[in-house]
Design a protein around this nucleic acid. Sequence first.
DNA 1: TTTCATTATTCACATATGGAAATAATGACG
DNA 2: CGTCATTATTTCCATATGTGAATAATGAAA
Lengths: 310, 310
Amino acid sequence: MDQIAAMRAFVRVVEAGNFTRAADLMEMPKPTVTKLIQQLEGHLRTKLLNRTTRRVRVTPDGAAYYERALALLSDLDELDGSMARAQTSPAGRLRVDIGTSLALNVIIPALPDFHARYPDILLDLGVSDRPADLVGENIDCAIRGGDILDPNLIARRIGQVDLVMCATPGYIARHGMPQHPRDLLEGHRVIAYFSPRTGRRMAFDMVRGEESYEFDLPYALAVNDSTAYQAAVLTGLGIAHAVEPLIQPYLADGTLVRVLPEWRSEPIVLHIVYAPNRHLSSRLRVFVDWVAELFASSNVYRLGPLPPPS
Amino acid sequence: MDQIAAMRAFVRVVEAGNFTRAADLMEMPKPTVTKLIQQLEGHLRTKLLNRTTRRVRVTPDGAAYYERALALLSDLDELDGSMARAQTSPAGRLRVDIGTSLALNVIIPALPDFHARYPDILLDLGVSDRPADLVGENIDCAIRGGDILDPNLIARRIGQVDLVMCATPGYIARHGMPQHPRDLLEGHRVIAYFSPRTGRRMAFDMVRGEESYEFDLPYALAVNDSTAYQAAVLTGLGIAHAVEPLIQPYLADGTLVRVLPEWRSEPIVLHIVYAPNRHLSSRLRVFVDWVAELFASSNVYRLGPLPPPS
DNA sequence: TTTCATTATTCACATATGGAAATAATGACG
DNA sequence: CGTCATTATTTCCATATGTGAATAATGAAA
């Protein structure tokens, strides 16, 4: 027996004064109303309605039950309604995990716009290059650069960033300017980025026409955070494989110089990832869409955290 | 979908921490729990549980829903429980319709006993020989003498009363003592009882051995209430067909004398009647049983209202 | 990395339920 | 009283749901 349906039918019969009208109001066949009332009376072991084909009268027990059933159905409808409203009017807490550079340079500066659009969404930002367990830590989504290795997550591509080789003028004055990727193997040091998850250093890849090199180079310093990497580049301790938009101001004012500029590296692809869910909450949906729009609507889409979390 | 069952399953899964244990606790197959949770999520269009085969985690939405569902289920259980208690612990109003003589002479004097046993039952006594519409007037039961003509009611026999012929000594001095039923046809008058429902007078029936008479006799006075009839007997206006236990004191002190004592009349059968109901309320059930016991446990069972409501 | 015990889900058949049509009951009217 | 319009209930077949068995997924342990 569907007790809620039975209670709804009973309430309707009491209010309508007969079975037929109640059935019409509920867009339900009459036998169904009959059956539901019978089932409810059986469940409660109490006669709720004295009825003939011409008259329906509520028993004293039925009248008492009606009042309480009405209140209870109202509570249930309120509960269902609040869930529906949560779906159609995005509100509530959203937990987002972002790499440091993307957070500091792209997302956080744009948040006034998101807040203006969705004032009822509370954003919890986890800012770290260290990947989190989305399901295990109840994180709604993450914005990441690089390959997405977890096949259980949905990854929506939102942009890419270029990597470029560079160094300080002081480093070049001391060690000389490399003329070819193989020059980096001797007499040079790099500033390396290592994965916060695996500890493995990211290789330096370089392509020119049909030529392609990929080296795990001798390094003077290795960091595993994209914002720290940007600061490390400026120390002059080595040659860096840096995110182009983040160092662009330093290239412009001469603080840094390009190294091997005729060689290109694979850009880093940016994704927003979240767990599959037939019933995606509206607040997550609007955030994903807003992020995608943010990256698509300006050339900041090419920005992203240094190296892939691989 | 049975939403209540789905909510119960959800609450159990949250508390048990996994589907299998919830299913065991509810004595329900695991696939049913799976289906119910899926249906509830579909109904609410919200993911309530993030689950793998090894772990079940409640989503933030799920946690919020859990609290409210728990409260609502508690209210429902309280409502169901209160209906069950009303069935097992007799309480509430009971409307009973009784003929005047039975009310005044039998039931009312015994009510202290009923009240002592069932202090939470409130009795509304309708006292009249005039029959009421049980269903139409929300009367729970009636105690009646005579044949029960309504086939839609349940009639439980609780006793019978004898009818006897009698008159005042003054009447006999003026008209003479009848020696045979046929003597009543000439020179005599009776006090008649007529049905409050149909207006028809009750016949005087007399049996002796194989002889049997039934006359609609000339009357000096006719009343349609059993208590009024008792008073009318004492006027000396005619011969009466009276309820034996009610006039016993007058026969003992000579106020009345028996007439045709060797002739017998059909006793009046007493019933308690109520509408059929698969779910008889406990208060009605205990009252019916108490009345039956009252009549069975003493010789008052032979008492009843005059003439049938026919 | 592979293995394996545990647990959620899916599948397919048995059982339960829904609902159109037929039937029974009611009570107003003449 | 009989007739008949209205309405609750029952019947029986089509559809939906429940559930045992099989399958897929997970994650701890070696």
